[in-house]
Amino acid sequence: MSLDVFELGPDHEQVVFAHDPATGLRAIVAIHSTALGPALGGTRFHPYASTADALADVLDLSRGMSYKAALAGLDLGGGKAVIIGDPATLKSEALLRAYGRFVQTLGGRYYTACDVGTYSEDMDHVARECSFVTGRTVAHGGAGDSSVLTAFGVFRGMLAAAESVWGTPSGALESVLEGRVVGVAGVGKVGRHLVRHLVEAGAQVVVTDPYAPALEQVRETHPSVRAVASTEALVAEPLDVYAPCALGHALTDDVVDVLSARVVCGAANNQLAHPGVEKTLADRGIVYAPDYCVNAGGLIQVADELEGFSFERAQQRAARIYDTTRAVLELAATDGVAPALAADRLAEQRMRDVGRLRGIWVG
């Protein structure tokens, strides 16, 4: 099968492939845009069925990072990387260092960080060969686990979406979720932290995850949380809020057809299985908080590391996801468009306006 990168990623600035036979490294870095600054995005380590699948994923994810950074108000562009293979069997210090040497050759156009299948400890190995790494361990001056603020940002976005449906609470803002039934699909890196916020806010939480130990850990930590066997079972539950927090394309036509939730707000990237799904959500009266709007907390956290990490400063920035989500939903209502389109418009406007100014002063 031949791959036409220019056809698949017509708006990307750069797509680079790396292969190191000695370590088994097969990686792709996609830089979507540097209009606002150097591209920043995590490295996903995943056993893709084919190179074509890996390429499609990295192109999709990198584009999302440009919009995420723009909407979050960061002076960063969008990029992403994938390493093809099973991290449980292929990951090694040698491979990660080979990957670091590869990223170094890009000269700072792309900064890497953690994603599915990679961790802060892995970034420490990458950084032994590369100057353009963030999301490192606290012991090495890094921000540590970026899932902490990813979950916090999703929670803040969920408050804004819930408020748009059920109105302003009389007490603390968090009380808008008190007594609401929230279904969380995926309680790994981000989902387990989100569950904590929801329980503290008084929500009734139902969870599912194919990895049994993850479910057991959440249930041990939060005995009030109820677990169901599958995502299919979860979306069939009587929910107020549905939070997809696993891999992308979780919102399919079949899922939306049975979903009872009034709000969809989760941490997963690229949640819409196809563009028409959001119209179906709107037609059914379901408020969709765009994923790249609400899950920007992790990006904010690792971006802050580039300034010399301060958790308090990063958390304050992530808290503004509430305001950004409100702005997106208000623009969607004013313009009569879907929230994802409203979010795109806000991000694209910033990329145009600020990118044009950067061109004047940097070019």
Score class of each variant (00 low, 15 high):
Gly78Val: 11
Ser92Pro: 11
Ala49Asn: 14
Asp353Tyr: 03
Tyr119Leu: 09
Ala296Gly: 00
Val181Gly: 03
Leu281Arg: 03
Ala88Trp: 01
Ala203Glu: 10
His32Trp: 07
Asp257Lys: 08
Glu7Arg: 14
Gly186Trp: 04
Pro38Ile: 06
Ala243Gln: 05
Gln316Ile: 09
Phe155Cys: 03
Met65His: 11
Arg356Asn: 01
Glu7Asn: 04
Ala267Glu: 10
Ala70Asp: 09
Thr105Glu: 14
Thr168Gln: 05
Leu215Ser: 11
Asp145Tyr: 11
His125Leu: 15
Leu90Glu: 05
Ala332Arg: 00
Val103Arg: 06
Arg97Trp: 10
Gly9Gln: 05
Ala52Met: 15
Gly202Pro: 06
Gly308Asp: 12
Val255Glu: 02
Glu93Asn: 10
Asp291Ala: 09
Leu357Gly: 00
Leu55Pro: 00
Glu278Arg: 01
Tyr48Pro: 14
Val103Trp: 09
Glu93Trp: 08
Ala98Thr: 05
Arg284Asp: 00
Ile83Gly: 00
Asp53Asn: 13
Gly78Trp: 05
Asp115Ser: 07
Leu55Glu: 12
Ser147His: 14
Thr221Arg: 03
Leu95Ala: 04
Val148Ala: 09
Lys189Ala: 07
Ala227Ile: 07
Ala214Arg: 07
Ala338Asp: 09
His249Pro: 02
Pro238Thr: 01
Glu278Asp: 11
Gly77Glu: 06
Glu200Asp: 13
Gln349Thr: 14
Val228Glu: 11
Met65Leu: 12
Cys130Val: 08
Leu251Thr: 10
Ala261His: 06
Gly37Asn: 06
Thr51Cys: 03
His46Arg: 03
Ile31Met: 07
Cys245Thr: 13
Gly77Cys: 08
Gln315Ile: 04
Val5Leu: 04
Thr280Met: 07
Ser230Gln: 14
Ile28Asn: 10
Val148Thr: 15
Val5Thr: 10
Gly336Arg: 13
Asp53Val: 08
Ser131Gln: 00
Glu163Asp: 00
Gly188Ile: 02
